[in-house]
Computed example of a mutant assay.
Amino acid sequence: MITFPNAKINLGLNITEKRPDGYHNLETIFYPVPLEDALEITVLNSSEHKFSLHQSGLEIAGNPETNLVVKAYRLLDEKFDLPPVDIYLYKNIPSGAGLGGGSSDAAFMLKLLNDKFKLKLSDKILEEYAATLGADCAFFIKNTPTFAEGIGNLFSPVTLSLKGYQLVLVKPDIFVSTREAFAQIRPHKPERSLREIITAPIEQWKDYMINDFEESVFPQHPAIREIKEELYNEGAIYAAMSGSGSSVFGIFHPKASLPTLKYENAFQFRCTLK
C-alpha cells in the first residue's frame, strides 16, 4: 500500500510570546501544497525484525531508527502489535526547509497503517497520536488549510482556497537551525490576526502578513532575502519564507508566466495550487 505525503507552507507566522517552559507561542496558517514524498509499506514474511526502512531520493540526515516514519510505526505497534513491515520512503521534499516534510511523512504513516491494518482509528485519535510525534504533525491528518496557535499544535479550520493560483518554491543550499531562527526574535502581539488578514484580497497580504523569522534569518543569510525580493520583482502577489526557513515561496496569479530563477544548487518547485 502506497501514499504520497505532501508539504505545507506557512502563510504568515507571528511569534506572540515566550512561555514559562522556554517555548514560544505563535500563530500561523498552514496551507498544503502538492510537493510530495512517496511512502509504501509491505508486510514482511519474516518476523526476525519488526520493520526494515529503505530510503531513496533526497538524502535524509540522521539514523534511520530516529526517522519519524519509524517512530510512527513503533507508536502504533506498541498499541496494536502490528505485523512486521518493510517501509519504503522516497524523499522529494527537502529537509530543513520549513515545509514540514518529516512531519507529513509521520502523519501519513499513521494513516497508512490505519488503513492497511484496518485499525478503524478516527481522525481525532490519529491527530492525538500525531501530536506526540511533533507539534505540526497533526495538521497533516486532515491536511486542509488550518490556523495554528500555541506552539503550532492547536488547530482550527479556516475558510481559505488558493485553488488555481500558481506557486514557485525555492530552497537554497542553506541550513537554518531552529536556535538560529529564534536568536533575534522579539515576541509581540500582531495588530491584525492572520485570521483577519486572509479574508482580505490576496493582493493586500504583502502589506499586512509577515513571517517574524525573516527578521532573524535574513540578516544572517542575505541570499534568502534576495530570493524573496526576486520573486516580488518577477510578479509574485505574495512571497515569504516558510516556517523558520530556508525555503521561500511566491504565489502568482493563475495566468501569470512563471519566472525561471537561476540559483546554483537550489531546489525549485512549481505547481498550481489545489
Rank of each mutant, 00 (worst) to 15 (best):
A72T: 09
G101C: 15
P157E: 06
G98C: 08
K91C: 08
G245H: 05
E191M: 14
L39Y: 11
L35C: 02
I29F: 00
S177T: 15
H49V: 15
P187N: 06
P157W: 12
I60C: 09
V43G: 05
G62N: 15
F249S: 05
K274Y: 04
L194Q: 00
L231A: 12
I87C: 06
Y232K: 12
L273S: 12
I198Y: 00
A138E: 13
V217T: 08
G57N: 09
D115T: 12
M209T: 12
L126Y: 02
E27A: 02
T28K: 00
T146D: 02
E180V: 11
K163V: 11
E264A: 06
D21K: 01
G12T: 10
M209R: 03
N63A: 03
K116M: 06
P187K: 03
T178Y: 02
M241K: 04
I251E: 03
Q220E: 07
V69P: 00
Q184K: 11
L112M: 07
S247Y: 04
E149S: 14
I174T: 12
L112R: 01
E17V: 13
P219H: 05
K163P: 12
D123P: 06
Q220H: 13
E17A: 15
F139V: 13
P5Y: 03
S177D: 08
N265P: 05
A239Q: 01
S104Q: 09
L26M: 13
K18H: 08
K111P: 00
T3D: 14
Q166S: 10
E226W: 05
Q204A: 09
F139M: 08
E65N: 12
N153V: 05
K8W: 13
D207W: 00
I198P: 00
Q55Y: 00
L160D: 13
D212Y: 01
F139A: 06
S246F: 00
K118A: 09
P84V: 06
M241F: 08
K8T: 11
E230P: 04
L44K: 10
R225H: 14
I202V: 14
E214M: 10
G150Q: 07
I174Q: 12
S177L: 05
S103V: 13
Q55R: 15
K189V: 15
L89V: 05
F218E: 06
L133Q: 01
E128K: 07
I87P: 04
K189H: 14
E59S: 15
F108W: 10
L169F: 10
N10F: 10
D105I: 04
K91G: 04
G150N: 01
N92W: 00
P187Q: 07
V85K: 00
P222Y: 15
K124V: 15
N67M: 10
L89F: 00
E196M: 04
A183Q: 15
L82A: 08
S52F: 07
Y238S: 09
K171V: 12
P259D: 07
G62C: 12
P201T: 14
E59V: 13
K262V: 11
G102P: 02
E27M: 12
T132N: 10
A131H: 05
T42Q: 02
I9N: 09
I151W: 04
E215H: 13
G102V: 03
K206Q: 13
H221I: 14
G150W: 02
Y90P: 00
G62L: 13
I197C: 14
S103R: 00
W205K: 04
N14K: 01
V69F: 06
I141K: 02
F218M: 09
V170L: 10
L89I: 11
A107K: 01
Q184Y: 03
R270L: 14
T16P: 03
G150V: 09
E229Q: 15
Q220C: 01
